[in-house]
């Protein structure tokens, strides 16, 4: 049940804004270097504050980008989360509700 998965950041990042095309980051926790564009950076910043579920994250993205609910495609967010998880930057913990 993906709705009850909560995402959290596992990375310990050093960040460089190399130019307007994006960021390059170094994750001290894994020793990996990543090139990230705006959406993954935004997701990391939102998760850095607190753990969020996918739907909470979607709402937070819409709010920070000044968009109406439903304007941000869910699959874009899902893909970004999958990419960040594969890069070992975030992890999900599944909570089972009663």
């Amino acid at each position: 049940m993906s709705q009850s998965a909560r995402w959290s950041v596992t990375a310990d990042l050093v960040q460089k804004a190399v130019d307007e095309d994006g960021f390059v980051v170094f994750d001290r926790a894994s020793g990996l270097t990543h090139f990230l564009s705006d959406m993954p950076i935004l997701v990391l910043e939102l998760l850095a504050g607190s753990d969020l579920s996918t739907s909470e994250l979607l709402a937070a993205i819409e709010q920070s980008a000044g968009l109406a609910p439903g304007e941000v495609p869910e699959d874009v967010v899902a893909q970004t989360l999958a990419d960040l998880e594969k890069a070992e930057l975030i992890t999900s913990v599944v909570h089972h509700s009663d």
Binding site: V14, F26, R28, F35
Partner: peptide, 22 residues
Amino acid sequence: LEAFRQLAFNCFNYTLLGETGF
């Protein structure tokens, strides 16, 4: 950004050096 990527790729010990290399 692209220069960063390619220079790191062309570095023998980039990964080993970790944050220092970055």
